[in-house]
Design a protein around this nucleic acid. Structure first.
Length: 425
RNA sequence: GGAAGGAUGGCUGAGUGGUCGAAAGCGAUCGCCUCGAAAGCGAUUAGGCAGCAAUGCCUCGCAGGUUCGAAUCCUGCUCCUUCCGCCA
């Protein structure tokens, strides 16, 4: 959420941002709504001041046992007027709030303007393997090795769900442990295991609601949502709290399953494990002071990249353009791992700086000491990134590590989680 | 699912329908004291909105209601705690 004052003071900037995202929103109407709000507020506050003064006088009269009747009667009229203004104010504020919640974050100046094709490859890592046989797709591999059973997953639940089996299940568990161990032991993150269901306030706090309600799984009777990412429960840990400056920055990492309806995406990447309704992910979340957030973003990307490097998966780092940027993000890097079987770059991580956008929605602040006398509370900056998402990483591992004899080598970094086994055969 | 109790500032916790945005304590910050620290003493210490400012207004879980006036009374809701039931 953007600050209405910021919107007023930076009208052109906000309008440019909407245009750069290829959206249509009537920002002038928002300002007009706020004008109306202020107009009501001024009159209302004047009357309230009058009322408060009169109440003190009535109080004093009663104390001295004098007659307060005339004063009381004269206030009845004002009370009615105040009542009416309050209703009007409420209505105007609700409208304004509803409107402001649909305005996306301002894209950072450093990112490319325009459609998704404008995205910029920042760097690449690793070499694309040259095969002396025709590499198979992960769909073929998992079937042959009997480590993932998609037909039965479809029977149990529906299409685009995954049933891991045997060493496939083991691989999933190994990856989760490997990533959590790396981030907690080497990168200084504290491990979190949050609820997988969250309430509406949490979903609104991180920006999934109101816009993306159709993409979420929602419980019928409880107004709870299955989390689409650990970002939601973990960022909301500090909702409506004021943090202490000296506790910052805070780094959290969490494994969760992630649930996405993927409404409207039928026919797109629907083969195999590329786009599924439930997948595992290890997430990185940071709460930091505003002046450090862009440095923290670079470090966060580095932490996610290290996962792919240790797994030996070739990847590239892509800076998204304005139209590709998610609703709440100001700047975002995607990590794309190469999968030779399907000959595709797969988005396995998305690392974003939200600046104060989520913090304002979720009301997460910190106390900053200015000098001995003065301290102020201000919104923190939140960041998060996948470190990394599993289903697609599994694709990349299977397709990159497949051997001519049909087996799949287990990346060195994972072997300690396989009792030293070096291949899936 | 049933019963009872509760929700007040960074935390604990008092609160009479009318000088209550709110006692007290803890914590924190600053000062005094000290070679330095602890202890002690003193001061400061909720958030938000409008305004250049002075200042004004709002907020005691949330939403309504009664009243000239609500932290306080009434209704509904949410959440928490304890007990019972069920349960991995």
């Amino acid at each position: 959420m953007l600050d209405i004052k910021f919107i007023r003071d930076n009208l052109d900037l906000v309008k440019d941002a909407i245009r750069d995202r290829n959206l249509k929103l009537d920002i002038d109407a928002v300002v007009a709504c706020d004008d109306q709000r202020r107009k009501i507020l001024v009159e209302l506050e004047g009357l309230r001041a009058q009322k408060n003064k009169a109440n003190d006088e009535i109080s004093a009269l009663l104390k001295e046992k004098k007659d307060a009747k005339p004063k009381i009667n004269s206030m009845k009229e004002i009370a009615v007027r105040i009542d009416a203004l309050e209703k009007g104010l409420q209505e105007t504020e609700d409208n304004l709030q509803k409107f402001v919640l649909t305005i996306p974050n301002i894209p950072h100046a450093s990112i490319p303007r325009g459609d998704p094709s404008k995205k910029k490859t920042v760097r690449s890592w690793g070499n694309i393997r040259q095969f002396d046989f025709k590499p198979q797709t992960h769909v073929e591999i998992v079937q042959r090795l009997d480590i993932i059973d998609l037909p039965r997953a479809a029977k149990i639940t529906g299409s685009n769900f995954i049933l891991y089996k045997g060493l496939g299940a083991r691989l999933e568990r190994a990856l989760i442990n490997f990533m959590l161990d790396l981030h907690t032991q080497k990168h200084g993150y504290t491990e979190i295991f949050p609820p997988f269901l969250v309430n509406r306030a949490s979903m609104t706090g991180t920006g999934q609601l109101p816009k993306l309600e159709d993409d979420m799984y929602r419980l019928k009777d409880d107004d709870l949502f299955l989390i689409p990412t650990a970002e939601v429960p973990v960022t909301n840990i500090f909702r409506d709290e004021v943090l202490d400056e000296k506790d910052l920055p805070i780094y959290y990492t969490a494994y969760t399953a992630c649930f996405r309806r993927e409404a409207g995406s039928y026919g797109k990447d629907t083969k195999g494990l590329t786009r599924v309704h439930q997948f595992d992910k290890v997430e990185l979340v940071k709460f930091v002071k505003p002046e450090t957030s862009y440095d923290e973003l670079e470090k966060l990307v580095g932490n996610a990249e290290e996962v792919l490097q240790l797994l030996g998966l070739p990847y590239r780092v892509v800076m998204l353009s304005t139209e590709d940027l998610s609703f709440s993000a100001s700047k975002c890097y995607d990590l794309e791992a190469y999968a030779p079987g399907i000959d595709n770059w797969l988005e396995v991580s998305s690392c974003s700086n939200f600046e104060s956008f989520q913090a304002r929605r979720a009301n997460i602040r910190f106390r900053r000491r200015i000098d001995e006398k003065k301290q102020v509370t201000e919104y923190i900056h939140t960041l998060n990134g996948s470190g990394v998402a599993l289903a697609r990483t599994v694709i990349a591992i299977l397709e990159n590590y497949q051997q001519k004899d049909g087996s799949v080598l287990i990346p060195e970094a994972l072997r300690r989680y396989f009792d030293g086994q070096d291949r899936i055969a």
